[in-house]
Design a binder for these strands. Structure first.
Lengths: 240, 240
DNA sequence: GAGGCAATGTGCGGTACCGTACGTTGAGAA
DNA sequence: TTCTCAACGTACGGTACCGCACATTGCCTC
């Protein structure tokens, strides 16, 4: 457990940015729950009973095709919320949400969120801005899938995960990363091997440690920076 | 000009679905404008003075990378609106909007849309549902870029365009399609050649005619159907 | 301390797409 | 009629990734 983790209590940034009145209305109904690795938060078409505000957990939005092939659409950590379809009005989505990194989250009955959303207050503004950030992330994922190498995409994926974790270590097998990136497991092995040879990461049996983040950013395509800049612009910064 | 085009007056479906009170508030401020092929509606970072409701024009949301490579993120026709960043709160986006098929659109001063949006009425619900449909489209684009062949993606692109046009003919050079799909022009030539040999389309110097739509749908990957089904679910159907 | 199994490594032929270079065709202008 | 140029066709070596098969490694269990 890093120094950072013990000093700065991890918190969901959307909840943290609420006015005290709004938080007072929601807080009594927030329920702290564990998010174990691999837990499916929702399947395509599921009507969500709850929305989730991750604290130190990470959830991936994944699309799984008819033939079993998959691809990650976006990542949600303590910067966001799981279940935007509820307040967007569609109730369900075509994707699956699955816990990529174990941890905790606050959960809230869907109806309460919807009620608060339609009070037209700060929560609504926050959630809409967050949704736009999500849109940017999806768009950039599409572009990255089209134009960039597996090596570059692995860097992007590592950085996106790192930003949502309290430490520089993530628990994740290469097979799972392959599912997220929508490539072969062997492709991830090769790409990760290169990064290890360069001293950027160290990994062993599902434990990845990022040793040199600046170098990682240098190897990455522009996609990470674009999403990061846009997210920072759209959302309240965590330590402001 | 097809029979369909002259009988059914093309209309923007979002505007058509408004309550009469809301439409009465907006209608006086709607301005009918021409959308010429290639017109850039906005560049990344631009704060939009207007939003646009396409009638018989099609606008592509395109992301252009630092090295000039590009990829289409989504398509907007008379089912949608250009300028969601205005009511989502971000004011700008990282993508470019460019007219892919010439035609007309209603434009509206951005502030008026924002004001109406924050009245919490039907327009807000409509726009949010439309935004979710857009999200689905972007997500599916990402998946399709990852897993499907240029042949399949061309089919998807043709179908998406066809759904937003009054006839079965589209004016589009292979070079422009290549920009949208983010592939080489030669790749489109090959894929389009196959479709022509199969009798699915006929094309010549920027004029593409779809001859056999059912066959086109058969050759397409699942991505088109997923987006279509989700869009129909989320948005009011045009002839209901 | 041997066995079992998940995680990772490696090799190899196949293929879809790329970058590049040119050739062909057709519509409109001079 | 001829010129010109945009649109489209074709060819070819290079490469990134795929699908598959199999070898290795290390943790955990018995």
């Amino acid at each position: 457990m890093s120094a950072t983790e013990s000093l700065v209590a991890p918190q969901n940034q959307l909840l943290a940015a609420l006015s005290s009145a709004e938080r007072a209305r929601l807080e009594p109904h927030l329920e702290l729950v564990q998010m174990p690795l691999g837990k499916v938060v929702y399947e395509p078409g599921d009507v969500l009973p709850y929305v989730y505000f991750p604290i130190d957990s990470i959830v991936s939005l994944l699309y799984v095709m008819a033939d079993g092939a998959s691809a990650e659409i976006s990542v949600v950590g303590n910067d966001g919320i799981i279940g935007i379809a509820l307040f967007m009005g569609g109730e369900t989505t075509a994707s699956r949400a699955i816990v990529q990194s174990a941890g905790k989250a606050y959960r809230l009955i869907g109806k309460r969120l919807k009620d608060e959303f339609h009070r037209n207050g700060q929560l609504q503004l926050l959630l809409l801005r967050y949704t736009q950030a999500l849109l940017t992330q999806m768009a950039q994922t599409a572009v990255c899938n089209r134009h960039h190498s597996v090596d570059q995409q692995l860097c992007r994926w590592l950085l996106l995960s790192l930003d949502r974790l309290p430490s520089n270590r993530l628990e994740m097998t290469q097979a799972l990363i392959a599912d997220m990136l929508g490539v072969r497991r062997e492709g991830v092995t090769e790409a990760a091997g290169k990064l290890q040879k360069l001293g950027v990461i160290r990994y062993a049996r599902g434990q990845i440690t990022v040793l040199d983040r600046p170098k990682l950013e240098g190897l990455c395509c522009e996609c990470y920076a674009v999403v990061k800049r846009e997210t920072d612009r759209l959302l309240p910064s965590p330590h402001a």
